[in-house]
Design a protein around this nucleic acid. Structure first.
Lengths: 124, 124
DNA sequence: GCAATAACGAACAAAATTGTGAGCCACTAA
DNA sequence: TTAGTGGCTCACAATTTTGTTCGTTATTGC
């Protein structure tokens, strides 16, 4: 999928070195990721619950996003024993939980200015 | 550039409605955006200074990112009078400044776990 | 006269992300 | 027996993002 030596990849790696900020953005910057993390934190921690919350997402895409969040250790996949068919629960890690509060700040920031807070230049 | 009725665009709009969080992510989620905002906040507020900080970025790409940040009212472009050739300064708005502190949280979050903080599941 | 500076813009190409169609497993309820 | 559930995976197509090439402005220094 990724070309090792594309300028795109090289630039991405460069940014990762400059500051962890850029790795963080890369983790949550995808189309559905931030919303999925937030939804899980609200208790929609099952595949089918997420599907209900995000009716437009296809199962393929949802599965892909969840796997990537798992790779970055934001969530952990847990099988629920003695269920048929075998249920799966997604649980936030402490890393994921810390992220949620930052996402909440971002959300409030967006709301504040969407609600018409005045915007003006700040003099340095 | 954007197709009005692509599923991709429709899904993006859907997420924008769900929560401002998603608009916020869309604003800062691009390849260089967060880093540019952060660099400007550190005083690299001129086109050529940003080029020096980000040696791999092409001028076209830098210009494009700056324009988009301007559209979202994160920065404002100011011409510096009596300079030859005419200099341009990028100034953060209050909206941009509020964003910077969130970016700093993100950065710290990334650093914390990159430095090896233990990760474990949080029980709900 | 020629290169350099500061700050871009347009058109195009490459690469990456996102979405689609189909199918799988092992059940259970009607 | 047919449909439904929960939770996926594969290969491929559509769309979007990112990067490249070339050109522009007006001026100064060599």
């Amino acid at each position: 999928m990724r070309k090792e030596n594309s300028t795109n990849t090289i630039n991405e790696q460069f940014l990762f070195q400059v500051c962890e900020l850029n790795s963080a953005i890369a983790i949550i910057g995808g189309r559905w990721k931030a919303q999925i993390v937030y939804s899980i934190s609200q208790g929609n921690n099952r595949f089918h619950l997420l599907k209900k919350e995000l009716p437009n997402i296809s199962e393929q895409v949802l599965g892909r996003q969840l796997k990537e969040l798992e790779i970055h250790a934001i969530i952990i996949k847990k099988e629920i024993p003695d269920t048929v068919p075998l249920g799966v629960e997604y649980v936030l890690t402490n890393k994921g939980l810390d992220l949620v509060s930052i996402l909440e700040s971002l959300c409030n920031w967006g709301k504040l200015y969407a609600d018409g807070k005045e915007i003006s230049a700040c003099l340095a």
